[in-house]
Amino acid sequence: MVVRERTTRVDLAVELCGLQLHTPLIPASGTLAKEALGEVEGVYGAMLPKTTTPRPRAGNPPPRIAETPAGMVNSIGLQNPGVEQFLKDLDAFDVGVPLFISVAGDTVDEFVALCERISSDERISGIELNLSCPNVEHGGLTFCAGPASVEEVVAACRAVVREKPISAKLTNEGAVENARAAEAAGADALTVINTVPALTIDARARKVLVRGGLSGPAIKPIALRAVYEVSRAVNVPILGSGGVASGQDVAEFMLAGATAVQIGTTSFVREPHTILEEFAGFLRDTGMSAAELIGALR
């Protein structure tokens, strides 16, 4: 409620793939539990729950997380109950804003089967392809290991998802080439970037603590550069993601070319409400609307 009162004088709305978002903020996949939805009422212009897979996944054994300066390394392993249970529980995330679903498979066929399974669900507005998981048919390289792989999986999903937007979520490495490939294969949007490969070591125990992906403010400049360069290489909208921690960060990502901005790890330590209020304050100060900010670097 406070957010609405304090943001009525600024125009936070953006259009993403034909969908109207009342704010440009979206939760990054895997960082907002249904138990925490009450804390973010009214903040997000679209919803995006944790990645779903064809079958339940137990996820990786602990330790799964390690704190690092200005961030954390995680290796959760896509723990989720599988798509059938996911769809049964989905109403919690159907809160009156466009609902994107993040999907991941071990093979291109699994991606396609997931897209077919969910694309007719009326609650769902769009699909985000989590391409950072290993492709078991290609020796465990991820689906975004190169443009050929990106093109294959995006084209196959595009063929079965006719009426809803697809965003391909890319890692930092090879982002521009992979973005071009995803666009050519029919992606309607790109999510840039996923976590950055990282490792933590417990020196006293002489053991690897967590081998996974780095997130949080530590990766913001990396993500910002990727968004900036991808936005100059493609014509589809970008969902900026990576270390966004403040309203000013949201503005920076939009100036770099993002149409919407995902909030992930920072939501563990800050209220997304606060980030939206800061962003509204930025717009008020500059006299611009959120939509006008997109790519508006001088």
């Binding site: 895997g30 960082t31 907002l32 539990a33 249904k34 138990e35 925490a36 804390e39 944790k50 996820g59 602990p62 330790p63 799964r64 997380i65 390690a66 704190e67 954390m72 995680n74 959760i76 723990q79 790890t265 939501s267 563990f268």
Partner: peptide, 13 residues
């Protein structure tokens, strides 16, 4: 070890 404390990160399993 916990990341978020509100169920979101799945780190403390």
């Amino acid at each position: 070890r916990m990341g978020c404390g509100n169920g979101s990160c799945n780190g403390c399993v």
